[in-house]
């Protein structure tokens, strides 16, 4: 009896310590999740500010007109006298391309184009994918079958091939490629949302909502959507980075003539790559814009991953109450 009492006296503080240690571990995890989200948010905000700067102060990069016009004029003549409108020697802090074009101002101007393109594609395709995926996942049966087959059909063709072919037909412009990429991209969101919605549909709160007479739209958007929001938000951010990579790839490969003289990261790397092909080994026009692109992708990836864990933690904490 004494022994048992002794054990109880010993166990109580041990359990408390274990609980405290678990709470501490949980706190550390949450902080780390937030740290990831915060780091991602800071990096993403940095790129957003650069993009907005170009919009608010169009001439801050030293060009008299738009950067696209300056680049067209520069590449059209390949004359060093055209460099002057692109700014003074200070802009060459990160070096220049084979033909003497400064990297820094073009790279900063590229952020606006890349962000505008990827935000358009991700917003349009995620909204289409969300609606189709939610309805397919909720209704199931023949509606699910038809919507899934349509999504699968678009996934039969490699994304870059589909986007380029649609853009080829539309006439190859910045907006055409954005529309074409949105058409190619929505099935990724639709399949993702549909599978998440199907698993959430089994939850008791959805059954309760159904028995209480909520309409399909109410159930999908009021009950199912909030449950899949953390995963969906994370996916949207990750895809934002991937779409930026896609546009850079298309430009790097010179697949879209409309982008030939646009200030775009892939284009800049393509100019850097030209120097490699020509046998002049200057690494900076290739490496610096490349790392700048990786920075943005890393930012949105960290933000997406961090947000997902943060939102999940909040819902866990809510469940504990």
């Amino acid at each position: 009896m004494d022994r048992n009492e002794g054990e109880e006296r010993l166990e109580a503080p041990t359990v408390t310590m274990v609980l405290k240690s678990r709470q501490a571990t949980k706190s550390v995890k949450v902080s780390l999740a937030n740290a990831s989200a915060i780091t991602g948010a800071v990096i993403t905000a940095f790129y957003l500010i650069i993009g907005l700067l170009d919009t608010v102060f169009p001439n801050y990069l030293g060009t008299s007109g738009s950067m696209s016009n300056a680049l067209t004029a520069f590449h059209g003549s390949l004359s060093s006298s055209i460099i002057a409108p692109l700014g003074g020697s200070g802009w060459y802090i990160l070096g220049g391309t084979l033909y003497g074009l400064p990297i820094l101002p073009v790279m900063l101007a590229a952020v606006k184009f890349d962000l505008a393109f990827s935000l358009f594609v991700v917003i349009v395709s995620s909204l289409i994918g969300l609606v189709i995926g939610l309805y397919a996942g909720f209704f199931g049966g023949i509606i699910d079958r038809i919507l899934t087959e349509i999504s699968n059909f678009f996934l039969q063709i490699p994304l870059i091939g589909l986007a380029i072919m649609i853009s080829y037909l539309l006439g190859f412009s910045f907006f055409d490629l954005a529309i074409a990429t949105s058409i190619a991209w929505w099935p990724i969101f639709a399949v993702f949302v549909r599978n998440k919605a199907r698993s959430v549909k089994m939850a008791t709160f959805v059954a309760s909502a159904m028995t209480s007479g909520d309409t399909a739209t109410e159930i999908t958007f009021r009950h199912i959507f909030p449950s899949i929001l953390p995963d969906f938000a994370s996916r949207v951010f990750i895809e934002l980075g991937i779409v930026v990579q896609l546009i850079a790839t298309v430009d790097f490969l010179n697949l879209d003539p409309a982008f030939k003289y646009m200030p775009e990261i892939g284009n800049m790397m393509s100019w850097g790559n030209t120097s490699v092909v020509l046998g002049t080994l200057i690494w900076w026009p290739l490496v610096i814009p490349g790392l700048f692109l990786v920075g943005f992708t890393l930012g949105v990836f960290l933000l997406g991953a961090g947000l997902k864990r943060s939102i999940r933690y909040k819902s866990w904490r809510y469940d504990q109450r």
């Binding site: 990750i238 980075g241 991937i242 990579q245 850079a248 790839t249 790097f252 490969l253 892939g266 790397m269 850097g272 790559n273 490699v276 290739l286 490349g290 692109l293 990786v294 992708t297 890393l298 990836f301």
Partner: peptide, 10 residues
């Protein structure tokens, strides 16, 4: 995810 394929290839 973070490193684009064309970048690594280049």
């Amino acid at each position: 995810i973070v490193f684009p394929l064309f970048l690594v290839g280049a």
